[in-house]
Amino acid sequence: MAVLRVRHCGALVYCRRAPPRCPACGGDLRRAGLTAAPVRLHCPFRHGHSQPRAFLIRPSRGTFLHDYDGHSDLHVGITNSKGVVYHYDQEGVHRAASGWEQSISIPLVQPDMWELLQHWDNLLEEFSLEEAWLPQRYEEQQHNCFTFALALVNRVRCGRGRQPLSKAEFTERFLLPHTTAAARYLRLHRHLAHSDVLIVPLQEQEQQEQQQDCEPAKHSLLE
Results as ranks from 00 to 15, higher is better:
P19K: 01
Q212E: 07
E139H: 15
G33C: 03
L202T: 15
E125N: 15
T147A: 06
A149E: 04
Q110D: 07
A181K: 12
D89W: 07
L192E: 02
W100P: 05
V84C: 15
E215Q: 13
S128E: 09
P44D: 10
Q51V: 12
H75I: 11
V84W: 14
E131G: 06
F127K: 03
E206C: 09
T63C: 04
A96F: 12
G33W: 02
F170T: 10
P19G: 02
A132I: 12
L29D: 00
V156M: 05
V93L: 03
L4Q: 00
K82D: 12
Q141F: 14
A217F: 12
Q142T: 13
A96R: 07
V85I: 12
L188R: 02
Q205W: 15
V93E: 00
N80V: 09
W100G: 07
S103W: 05
H8I: 00
V200H: 00
C43K: 14
R190M: 08
Q208H: 15
K167E: 14
H49E: 04
A132T: 15
H71L: 11
Q212V: 09
I78E: 05
Q141V: 13
W114D: 15
R184N: 07
L192P: 00
N122R: 14
Y138R: 06
R40I: 10
M113C: 01
N144Q: 02
